[in-house]
Deep mutational scan, measured.
Amino acid sequence: MQRVNMIMAESPGLITICLLGYLLSAECTVFLDHENANKILNRPKRYNSGKLEEFVQGNLERECMEEKCSFEEAREVFENTERTTEFWKQYVDGDQCESNPCLNGGSCKDDINSYECWCPFGFEGKNCELDVTCNIKNGRCEQFCKNSADNKVVCSCTEGYRLAENQKSCEPAVPFPCGRVSVSQTSKLTRAETVFPDVDYVNSTEAETILDNITQSTQSFNDFTRVVGGEDAKPGQFPWQVVLNGKVDAFCGGSIVNEKWIVTAAHCVETGVKITVVAGEHNIEETEHTEQKRNVIRIIPHHNYNAAINKYNHDIALLELDEPLVLNSYVTPICIADKEYTNIFLKFGSGYVSGWGRVFHKGRSALVLQYLRVPLVDRATCLRSTKFTIYNNMFCAGFHEGGRDSCQGDSGGPHVTEVEGTSFLTGIISWGEECAMKGKYGIYTKVSRYVNWIKEKTKLT
């Protein structure tokens, strides 16, 4: 034993070699072989497995989906700052455009905790909710729209109204504003409101030439003092309507412009014939205590009207009353817009006519005020429907199939267009061939041609 100890002390290297040989010859039971080890760690190889990531292109799944990435790591994937920024906006807080917040056709661009709407022409605001041009839906104005110097929408209202708090709607500024039905039992019968379409306001006024200088022999019209197929109006439903009495009662109609003036057809009036105007009328054979009678003290036909040349060209006249009318729910003026808007309103496509005229061709006159909704007829169809001249200051309205029309005794009465609950004068009943005849239409004086003249002559002093 002493000898062994001496050998170990003198030859430590020998001992180490012996131990190493023993270990190498022993069977290893701690580690699995290569094949079995792979069965336990069965993990798919990654895209760049075996390579240094710093030297390969980034992978979106590896960089940002398996674990949260930084902007720089995302930049490695896209290799483009702009594309990385677009991805980053949604990656950080989701897609803010998912709810489609942009209105009126706006395009949404996502941002971090926010979004941006790219608005089409005519709109602005956070969600493109603000109209900035009158060309689109009248700028959301209830009545009139004008573009300011910086191309912003400025709404306005006709006389007797003021802008509401929203700067879009119009509200009454006087007790009985024009064009409004205020009798409670008839307010439910107000005709369907007309909503502004998209309009090209630059070209809204037709490029028409008034044929002022045409000389033409007097034409022989049949029954051209021209509501057939209409309905009984309720008291106060058309408070701007008046009836004219002269040699015979209810020979023509008219509309209240203001307390002192009536507008009617020029062919209705004769110099030297006494005319009485009755406002607030409903049943011409009954006294309903809503009527107001006034005498006409002055007749002003349009300066281009000449019955000797043509009885229905420039067929418009103004009547001055001896005493002002007292405005109330049964006696209310009709609204008159400017030339541009009167023309736009007419193009809405349908209007209402009213009167006490004959209820059928050569038949009896109506006792109760009649009204009828009539569609506008395109000019080409209008011209083809008659052998008589249709001037540019006239328009056609009615039904091709016949059966409904204005008729004798309705002449001078109103053709009105309702705009968001307020009625505007767009025409004056003038003439036609018979009444409600198939293929024939009622012919009306186009008020847009005469609004400046009306307003100039009827100013209240």
Rank of each mutant, 00 (worst) to 15 (best):
L318N: 01
I214V: 12
I316C: 00
C335H: 02
E433C: 12
K455F: 05
P197M: 10
V447R: 01
N310K: 06
V154H: 07
I15D: 01
T422C: 07
E129G: 11
L103H: 09
C382T: 02
K109D: 11
Q216G: 04
D322H: 05
P120Y: 07
L52E: 12
N100Q: 12
A308Q: 11
F121L: 11
E159Q: 06
E171S: 06
E165N: 07
T16F: 13
Y330M: 11
F251Y: 06
S329L: 04
D93V: 14
T194V: 07
N313V: 06
G427Y: 00
P44I: 06
S411M: 15
N213M: 08
S182A: 11
F399V: 13
N328M: 02
C155A: 00
G125Q: 03
L425Y: 00
N343G: 14
Q408F: 09
Y161R: 03
C28G: 07
D110H: 15
I309W: 06
K440S: 09
E66H: 06
Q370D: 04
R226I: 09
N104M: 08
A279E: 00
Q237W: 09
D198P: 06
W240G: 00
Y330H: 13
L211T: 11
I428Y: 08
E10W: 12
E323P: 04
R62H: 12
F348S: 15
K293M: 06
R162F: 08
G160M: 02
P375F: 06
T422A: 05
N222L: 09
K137E: 10
Y47N: 15
T271A: 10
P375G: 14
P414T: 15
Y312R: 09
L376R: 10
G13M: 06
E66C: 03
Y47T: 15
A233Q: 06
C102W: 01
T276N: 07
L163C: 02
E82D: 15
P120S: 08
F144V: 01
G13P: 05
Q167L: 11
E76H: 15
F238L: 05
I344H: 13
L383K: 05
L14G: 02
V278H: 06
V273L: 08
F31W: 11
E159S: 05
R226Q: 04
Y22P: 02
V56Q: 09
E323W: 09
E142R: 03
R75C: 13
N245P: 02
M65H: 10
S430N: 05
V92D: 08
S169C: 05
G351L: 02
A26F: 03
N310T: 10
A436N: 14
N452R: 10
Q219A: 13
E72K: 15
S184M: 06
D110F: 14
K446Y: 02
F221Q: 04
F71A: 15
C252W: 00
T417Q: 04
Q96W: 13
G125D: 03
I454W: 00
C128A: 03
S182T: 08
K457V: 14
C28H: 00
A37C: 14
Y91S: 15
K39H: 11
D315R: 00
T84G: 14
S448F: 02
A9D: 03
L60H: 15
L211N: 08
R162W: 07
T458K: 02
Q216I: 03
D322S: 09
C155G: 00
S156F: 09
S430V: 14
P175L: 10
K347C: 02
R373N: 14
S423T: 09
S156I: 04
V181T: 13
I284M: 05
T389G: 14
E142K: 06
I336G: 00
R162P: 01
V331H: 00
L163S: 03
M8H: 10
F399W: 14
E27F: 02
D33L: 07
Y91H: 14
P333T: 02
E320N: 02
N245L: 06
N258S: 05
I262M: 01
K274R: 12
V92Q: 12
N36D: 10
N304D: 14
S217F: 12
K387G: 11
E286A: 08
T16A: 12
Q96P: 06
G413Q: 12
E10I: 13
T16C: 07
C252I: 01
S70K: 15
S329Q: 13
R294N: 00
N283I: 05
A308L: 09
Q143M: 06
Y444A: 03
G355H: 11
D315K: 01
I284G: 11
G236K: 08
K168M: 12
S187W: 06
Y115H: 15
K137Y: 10
E129N: 11
H400F: 11
P44C: 12
A317D: 00
G351E: 01
E67N: 06
L163E: 02
R384S: 08
P333I: 01
H282W: 11
N127K: 11
Y161C: 00
V243G: 03
V278C: 05
T186W: 07
K293I: 04
K459A: 06
L321R: 00
G421I: 02
G442Y: 13
R162D: 06
L346I: 12
L376M: 05
C134K: 02
Y444R: 01
D212P: 04
C119A: 02
D200Q: 06
G236I: 06
C268M: 00
G439H: 08
E171Y: 09
S184D: 11
N5E: 07
C396R: 02
E270R: 09
S411V: 15
E401M: 05
Q57F: 15
E165S: 05
K457H: 15
W88L: 12
E418A: 14
I309V: 11
L367F: 15
I7W: 11
N203E: 06
E53C: 10
L376Q: 10
T158Q: 11
F399N: 06
E281G: 13
N452D: 14
K455R: 14
K339T: 13
H314A: 09
Y161N: 01
E67S: 04
D150E: 06
R43I: 08
G229C: 07
C335K: 00
F176G: 02
T85V: 07
P197H: 05
L369D: 07
A307E: 06
E193L: 12
N104G: 09
E124Q: 10
K440G: 13
C128H: 03
C145K: 01
K457P: 01
E208R: 10
N393P: 02
R3V: 07
N127M: 15
M6N: 09
Y201G: 07
R83K: 07
F87C: 06
E79N: 13
C268R: 00
V30N: 15
A233I: 09
D95I: 10
A308I: 04
S25L: 15
S354D: 01
D405H: 12
R3L: 13
V227E: 07
D198W: 12
D200K: 10
A233L: 07
N313E: 13
S11H: 09
F224E: 03
G179F: 00
C102S: 00
P333H: 01
V227A: 12
K293Q: 10
T386Q: 11
A164V: 04
I428N: 01
P44Y: 09
V77E: 09
A207Y: 09
C102F: 01
V77P: 15
V153C: 04
V374R: 07
P414L: 14
A266L: 02
A436Q: 15
T287R: 06
R226A: 04
K274M: 04
M6Q: 15
I316W: 01
S354M: 15
F78W: 10
R162A: 06
K293D: 02
F87S: 15
D93R: 13
A192P: 03
V257T: 01
K146M: 11
V153I: 08
K45E: 13
N147T: 13
R75N: 14
L327C: 03
A337V: 04
P101Q: 14
A164L: 07
C18F: 14
C335F: 00
F78I: 13
S329I: 04
K339Y: 14
D150F: 05
A9E: 03
C170M: 01
L19I: 11
L369Y: 08
N147C: 09
V277M: 03
I428P: 00
V202E: 09
M6D: 06
L376N: 07
A192V: 09
A380H: 07
N222P: 10
E27S: 13
G272V: 04
E171L: 12
P324A: 06
P239F: 01
C28Y: 00
H34S: 08
T445H: 07
W240D: 00
D33V: 08
V368M: 15
K311E: 10
A317K: 00
V416K: 00
P324M: 04
